[in-house]
Amino acid sequence: MNDSSISEIVTRVNQLPDIDESVDVSWVGASDDTAIKILENALDVNITGSFRDFILQTGGGGLEDLYISSISKDAPLSGCYEDTIHYRQDWCPHKLPDHLIVIQRDFDDNEPMCLDTSVVIDGENPVVLYYYQSTGNIEKIADSFSSYYQEFLSPYFDANDI
């Protein structure tokens, strides 16, 4: 599968409700570098590549079933920050390592999808799954956020011929 740009992926997501009434799309609203920097400083990380582009364009959000944690221009220490801090607390059998930030949280507290900020390859942070409940292992899911997002949206795109 070709790695589409974030703009192309977001355009396709925005077309889904016009084709399928059961699909709900909601974006937080474009963010900015200041909000991202506030989050980066608070978590001591550096966000690069397509996830940063996604946040600048949308702020976070998307499909209800595939909601991406936000970095809001007006409240940068909510969304992604709160989701990340949630898995760094004492209740976790294996606390989230400092170099991971949660980009997609399952509110049933299943394993979160994270951005690995300790790795940058071709300007991208990879997307990983963190097994906090069982082993504390990290499983690489995609080389970039855009690859991850496009792959998980492909059933919606394919079903609706977008």
Rank of each mutant, 00 (worst) to 15 (best):
G61A: 09
V45N: 08
F54E: 11
I19Q: 09
E21H: 11
V25M: 06
F54I: 05
I36L: 13
S69W: 09
S26M: 10
L16S: 06
L66S: 08
V23C: 11
I55F: 01
D33A: 14
S69V: 04
Y67C: 13
G59P: 04
I19V: 14
S69T: 06
S69R: 08
V25N: 04
I47M: 11
E40C: 11
E21D: 13
I38E: 15
S22M: 10
Q57L: 15
T34C: 08
T48Y: 13
L66Q: 12
K37Q: 15
D24W: 00
S22L: 12
I19F: 09
D20Y: 04
I38T: 14
Q15S: 09
D65W: 09
N41D: 15
I47Q: 11
S69N: 12
V25F: 07
R52P: 04
V28D: 08
Q57G: 03
N14P: 07
I71W: 01
L56R: 07
V28K: 05
S22F: 12
D18N: 15
S50Q: 00
L66V: 08
I71H: 08
S50L: 00
D33M: 11
G62D: 09
I38W: 06
G59R: 03
N14I: 03
W27S: 05
V13C: 12
F54G: 00
V23K: 09
E40P: 13
S72T: 00
V23R: 00
I38Y: 10
K73P: 05
D44K: 15
G61L: 05
G49S: 03
D20K: 05
S72I: 02
T58I: 06
S26P: 03
V13R: 00
G49H: 06
R52I: 02
A35S: 15
G60W: 13
L63M: 08
P17H: 01
S50T: 07
N46L: 11
Q15L: 12
I71V: 15
D53E: 15
K37V: 03
P17Q: 10
S72L: 03
G62W: 10
V45T: 10
F51E: 02
I55C: 06
W27E: 00
S72R: 05
D65E: 15
I38C: 11
K73R: 14
V25C: 07
I38N: 13
T34Y: 13
D53A: 13
S26G: 08
K37Y: 10
Y67N: 14
L39P: 02
D65R: 06
G60I: 04
I68G: 02
E64V: 07
D32L: 11
D53L: 04
T58S: 07
G60T: 01
E64K: 07
S26N: 12
N46H: 14
I38A: 15
L39G: 06
T34W: 06
R52F: 03
D44T: 13
